[in-house]
Amino acid sequence: MRVVVRTVSELCITVGTVIVLFVVYVLFWTGVKADHVMDDQIDRLQEQWAQGAVRPTAAAPGGESGGEAGAPESAPSPGPYSTDKPFAIMYIPRLGFTWNKPVLEGTATKTLKKGLGHYANTAQLGQKGNFSVAGHRRTYGDPFKDFPRLRPGDAVVLTDGTTWFTYRIDKGPYKTLPTDIEVIDAVPRKSGYTREGRYLTLTTCDPEWGHSHRLIVWAHLDSTQPVEAGKPEALRR
């Protein structure tokens, strides 16, 4: 009898310890890991861009020996992004002056562990349509923890290594249901946009630790400038 009681209590203590460890893992360790991985992704992107392999288009034969950077083709359509790979860096001054995260292609669970995820079937960065991005509210570095603080007029700046894209938030945060997939339509109905344009949608979960709803913000492309021209206005201080 005593052995049974002792074993049961030992098991209970063990389960309790494992649960505490799991909480530590979710709250703390995923953040440590994600910060490391995201920095790594950004480093890799910047390395790629520094080597000039900016647009991994299918036809690009590596380094063009002409080297005349002064003649940008008019709005070159970027090749398809490769799934699970980073292709841009996002800056949102409202979320912190040092807030910057890599944007990866796809919204699979494993992709979102490494950064923000671009909905694969939505427009590409700066192109006509709705460039839509999802990110964690909590855990994995808490990228969108302060999402509700976003306000109309706030800048969302992205770079793909050649161009700075400055989007301005028009509406949000807007609370909706997880099944409301039309928020990432080319012209989202609830956004107030009426015609086609170059839009951006950010999505995350709501409430902070739950999954019953989603928070959305919509933005439009306000300006672009080549990286040679320096950081855009919104990122200067």
Partner: peptide
């Protein structure tokens, strides 16, 4: 044991929690 938990068990169990549901198309 802690190593196995952090590297194998918890990464498996964590997606079962709701914190990963941040998209609107349920991928």
């Amino acid at each position: 044991v802690v190593y196995v938990l952090f590297n194998y068990v918890f990464p498996w169990a964590e997606p079962l929690l709701p914190f990963n549901d941040v998209t609107v198309d349920n991928q």
